[in-house]
């Protein structure tokens, strides 16, 4: 089996990407690269007035994510393993939701130019959840810059993410229905996921709790 050196975790706000990246990095002896979203100086303005600050926010994210992805591609992936808590393409998902048609057309030209330099993951993990579940988590964790997020926005993101990952084929894909898993409190759940990562042979697979 090909070693999975570059693993990406993705999911809508509140899915628990960052925490899971930390847990997996620890378990798989990998380096971890986290998105620096709170550095974006437009973010709190954006959540307060999405229309007005969408383009600023998007361009800032695109630039900083690009820079970080270039750094990942410099890492010697033969000798080390890397986990990130975001997929570069998420930038475009958000852009499509938040920008006007004209803005998005312009954005997409820039995106198309730089996308080819982005390293491809060896495995992508998508944390799927219902908007209700995510919204409650966001309220519960109460990050300052997330306080203004509206339920409808989470709903819209869920729809866009689910459609995006339905067609995703850039790398093998593990879809985890996170309801019923508790990676932070139950190490068995992390074991199970590690095992899935190691044994995944198909191009994609869905893991969920069943009754």
């Amino acid at each position: 089996m090909k070693e999975r050196r570059f693993i990406v975790i993705e999911g809508v706000i509140g899915a628990g990407k960052t925490a899971l990246a930390g847990l997996l990095a620890n378990r798989l002896h990998a380096g971890i690269i986290q998105e620096q979203f709170e550095d974006n100086p437009f973010l709190d303005k954006f959540y307060a007035d999405r229309r007005k600050y969408a383009f600023h926010t998007q361009l800032y994210f695109l630039m900083s994510r690009y820079k970080q992805q270039r750094e990942i591609s410099q890492i010697d992936l033969f000798s080390s393993r890397v986990i990130t808590d975001y997929l570069f393409a998420k930038d475009r998902i958000f852009a499509e939701i938040n920008l006007s048609e004209d803005e998005f057309a312009l954005y997409d030209k820039i995106y198309g130019l730089i996308e080819r330099d982005i390293p491809r993951p060896d495995l992508t993990i998508y944390l799927q959840a219902s908007p209700d579940f995510l919204f409650r988590r966001i309220k519960h964790r109460d990050r300052v810059f997330e306080r203004e997020i509206e339920y409808e926005y989470i709903e819209q993101l869920c729809n866009s993410y689910n459609t995006f990952f339905f067609h995703y084929n850039t790398s093998p894909l593990l879809i985890v229905d996170i309801k019923g898993f508790d990676f932070l409190r139950r190490s068995n759940d992390v074991d199970l996921l590690c095992n899935e990562i190691k044994t995944l042979k198909e191009p994609r697979r869905i893991i969920s709790r069943q009754w």
Binding site: S130, N159, N162, I206
Partner: peptide
């Protein structure tokens, strides 16, 4: 409307996922 969710095919597994 609920969100549209990716699900595993039921009954007959050797086919693409569903939305």
């Amino acid at each position: 409307k609920s969100t549209a969710r990716i699900t595993q095919p039921w009954g007959k597994a050797d086919q693409p996922d569903f939305l």
